[in-house]
Design a protein around this nucleic acid. Structure first.
Length: 280
DNA sequence: TTGTGTTTTATTGCCTCC
DNA sequence: GGAGGCAATAAAACACAA
């Protein structure tokens, strides 16, 4: 950012002044005191009275941006928890209550939504990663079991052949040899790194547990747990379909993995439904 | 104290909606 | 076209190790 850009001026509506990013402030043609000096004397906008005290700001005003007080942040957080979107009326009320400019309140909500969204993405990632890890280990054990069964089939077929050759009947019924690939399980591209698969967006497919027809979630701390949603001010029960950002074009902060829970059974060529689900 | 990484506040520019 | 939202970004403020 250029050093001469304008910062938001909380008292501009009163004093018609500008202050600059390089520390050179402009206020009625004169320079003002340094930030360090100012911050020792008072917190940033400690009360609405101070904010609108023209004389006060004529003497000293914030040259650089200040952090909000813990009380201000607390109230903003509470308000955000109630609703992360800010209607004009609420903005004005909050600004008045906190002794801030409405613009500052709006900016705070904007930034807070951005932080929240980032957190959500992290949580979504963790959830999918743990789901993927769990499914991978399941797949590996099923593949192992499959190999064992195949070996068993081969050995039984050999035994059958040997008994046929010796002319000795094995049983009353004539038993046909079993094709080994009848117990073939679908090969899934599990050799790719989970990070790659998760970051591929809509390009990749993933698997969910057939029994529950939803993501396999072993983690207790899952973001999708109803409690966590409630904490975040949202109301999405586990297993609910998550609203896509594309659905209405708005970001209501529910999730960024749209349609993840819409599971479709994936039929094999021979019509047999496999124990895997692929989401669209 | 200082260097460095992180968080917070604020701006800019673009996009969408009414 | 104006209002409001978001992503990207800058820069101040803060935290913390060395």
């Amino acid at each position: 950012m250029e050093s001469s850009r304008l910062f938001f001026n909380p008292s501009a509506s009163h004093g018609n002044m500008l202050f600059l990013g390089n520390g050179d402030s402009v206020f009625g043609g004169r320079s003002v005191m340094g930030m360090e000096e100012t911050s020792k004397r008072r917190p940033f906008f400690s009360s609405p009275e101070e904010l609108f005290d023209e004389e006060y700001y004529g003497e000293q005003f914030p040259e650089k941006k200040r952090r909000l007080t813990s009380e201000q942040v607390l109230l903003l957080e509470k308000s955000f928890e109630a609703d992360n979107k800010l209607e004009p009326e609420r903005k004005t009320q909050l600004a008045k209550k906190l002794g801030l400019q409405p613009r500052q309140v709006a900016v705070w909500f904007q930034n807070r939504r951005a932080r929240w969204k980032n957190k959500q993405l992290e949580m979504d990632y963790d959830l999918l990663k743990s789901s993927y890890d769990s499914l991978l280990s399941k797949y590996e054990s099923v593949a192992k079991e499959n190999e064992k069964l195949k070996a068993e089939v081969v050995s039984l077929n050999e035994k059958l052949k040997a008994e046929d050759m010796s002319g000795k009947p094995v049983s009353d019924e004539k038993t046909a040899p079993v094709a080994v690939d009848m117990v073939q399980i679908p090969a899934l591209p599990f050799n790719t790194k989970v990070e790659d698969r998760l970051s591929s967006g809509s390009g990749g497919s993933a698997v969910v547990d057939e029994d529950s027809r939803q993501l396999v979630v072993d983690s207790v701390d899952s973001y999708f747990a109803a409690d966590n949603y409630a904490d975040a001010g949202c109301h999405l029960a586990r297993g609910d379909r998550i609203q896509s950002e594309e659905d209405d074009g708005s970001d209501d902060g529910r999730s960024y993995f749209s349609d993840v829970f819409v599971a479709e059974p994936q039929n094999h060529e021979d019509g047999e439904t496999l124990n895997w689900w692929v989401w669209s």
